[in-house]
Design a protein around this nucleic acid. Structure first.
Ligand SMILES: Cc1cc2nc3c(=O)[nH]c(=O)nc-3n(C[C@H](O)[C@H](O)[C@H](O)COP(=O)(O)OP(=O)(O)OC[C@H]3O[C@@H](n4cnc5c(N)ncnc54)[C@H](O)[C@@H]3O)c2cc1C
Length: 456
DNA sequence: TGGGGTTTGGG
DNA sequence: CCAAACCCC
């Protein structure tokens, strides 16, 4: 009698070094399934939706090179998965687990409908939740001790697919048929692996280049990690920590794990401040705040560094880490708008957007999370711009209307002399917005609001 | 991976 | 005069 496993792929869209896939392919036959969940696709903005569907196509490509193909179905997993099980005769469903409340609840619902437990592995983190603990036995609320413990743990060995026969998807449910031929160019684990290889040529200068948004001094691997095209465990192992650049890169992977573990422990990370006293802040609300929020989303705040970053986000689904901090700080501290509103917009628009990383980082910027920046750390958008993009190379890329301003004026056009603006062809309020807020006043307003929440 | 203001100490 | 140190938020 042959044994059949159903491997249900979610955000682990690769075959190599994938614990769930390795286990599933230890059976005689294995069915590979992706469920296109309407709720998830609706929540994703255009960039992440495209990336996800391309990654699904890429997974199908990988499966075809082992003689099978991917079965893709649309619907609620609680309906789709049990149906696929009964159609294929699979006796086990194998997954890599995820940390969000949404995915935990989904898997519980599926198990109920299946009438049996799902076989769970971990394949989207370097170390799974619950495996990195302080002496007291809990999850650290401070990154540094977490990182130390995390580094002390040895990395598990890479796992390889077993020899199970990969089943072909039935007619009508291959990604090509589901998504349309050629609409989504395959983006797969080979692409992620190739990108990682070229990153290893540059990783040694990461610690020096990472804060410069005008150059691609970072790995650009976040979307591949988001969808599991790259094994984070493998990335940490292959990079090593023997140079400062490599150590800094691997530390970022620890940061990623930390936010995932925190999310597993605090499923409401996107809804409540992990330091609850900060939920007493009197955020700006009403028409004026709504107008500020719209200006921020559209890149019309009048602060070039914020506007360039927000325009890049909307146009590409990407934003450099330094700019994420600056743009998020601007929304929270300068506009005094609830971090949750910004978090939702970022999550929708970012190709790499996910709840643990996005909400964790927003809580860090807003000062509401564990080990977050203290609330009185307020970024000055002009100072950040001068420090990290001194020539305005990045600004010019996204704000062509300011290109003729020199590298002194471009960071704060409203401070330039009228003649200088005229010579550069910039009419503030017409070609480019006048600043929506005065940073010095806004900073005082934010400090007062935070202080009030903490003391009053 | 904060910034604004002030003081201090060498030039 | 200026950078660094220091305090505070
Ligand atoms: C307000 C805000 C929102 C963010 N939202 C997201 C998000 O939705 N999804 C996301 O993946 N990252 C998010 N980040 C973290 C970080 O900005 C991105 O991971 C990074 O810019 C991705 O570029 P990279 O792959 O070139 O990173 P690299 O600098 O090359 O870092 C390597 C990897 O480490 C991880 N990493 C790096 N920085 C962080 C960090 N600060 N926190 C956690 N993990 C990190 C990422 O997986 C990244 O791919 C956010 C940061 C901020 C400040």
């Amino acid at each position: 009698m042959t044994s059949t496993a159903l491997a249900w792929f979610r955000r682990d869209l690769r075959l190599d070094d994938n614990p769930a896939w390795a286990s599933a392919t230890a059976r005689d036959d294995v069915v590979a399934l992706v469920v296109l969940e309407p709720a998830l696709l609706a929540a994703a903005g255009p960039w992440r939706r495209r990336a996800y569907l391309s990654a699904v196509t890429g997974l199908d490509r990988s499966l075809r090179s082992c003689g099978g193909s991917l079965r893709a179905e649309t619907g609620d997993p609680a309906e789709v998965v049990p149906r696929a099980v009964s159609e294929t005769g699979a006796e086990v469903v194998v997954v890599n687990a995820d940390v969000t409340r949404w995915s935990v609840e989904r898997d519980r619902r599926v198990e109920q409908r299946l009438g049996m437990p799902i076989e769970q592995h971990w394949g989207t983190l370097v170390h799974p939740p619950g495996s990195v603990l302080t002496r007291a036995g809990g999850l650290s609320n401070v990154l540094t001790p977490f990182h130390r413990r995390w580094s002390e743990r040895s990395l598990s060995e890479a796992v390889r697919p077993g020899s199970g026969c990969v089943v072909e998807a039935p007619d009508g449910s291959t990604p090509t048929e589901m998504l349309g031929d050629g609409l989504y160019a395959p983006w797969g684990e080979q692409d992620a692996a190739a990108r990682f290889e070229t990153w290893l040529d540059r990783v040694d200068s990461y610690d020096e280049e990472r804060d410069n948004p005008a150059t691609d001094g970072t790995s650009g691997l976040s979307a591949a990690l988001r969808f599991g095209l790259l094994s984070p465990r493998g990335a940490a192992a292959d990079a090593g920590t023997h140079t400062p650049g490599r150590a800094a890169f691997v530390r970022q992977l620890a940061w990623r794990d930390w936010y995932a573990h925190l999310t597993f422990e605090h499923p409401d990370i996107d809804r409540v401040s992990l330091r609850p006293e900060y939920d007493r802040i009197a955020w700006a609300e009403g028409d004026a705040a709504d107008a500020d929020f719209e200006a921020w989303k559209a890149g019309r705040t009048g602060y070039p560094i914020v506007d360039a970053a927000m325009r890049e986000l909307a146009a590409t689904g990407w934003m450099h880490n330094r700019l994420r901090m600056v743009a998020a700080s601007f929304l929270v501290k300068d506009l005094l708008i609830d971090w949750r509103r910004g978090e939702r917009w970022f999550r929708r628009m970012l190709t790499d957007g996910d709840i643990p990383q996005n909400a964790g980082n927003w809580q860090w910027v807003a000062g509401t999370g564990p080990d977050a920046a203290p609330y009185f750390r307020v970024f000055n958008p002009v100072a950040q711009s001068r420090r990290h993009d001194p020539e305005g190379r990045y600004l010019r890329r996204w704000l062509p209307e300011l290109d003729r301003l020199d590298s002194r004026a471009i960071h704060a056009p409203w401070q330039a002399a009228p003649a200088e603006l005229a010579a550069a062809g910039v009419r503030l309020g017409a070609d480019y917005p006048a600043p929506t807020v005065d940073h010095d006043e806004a900073r005082e307003r934010a400090l007062a609001a935070y202080r009030e929440a903490l003391t009053g």
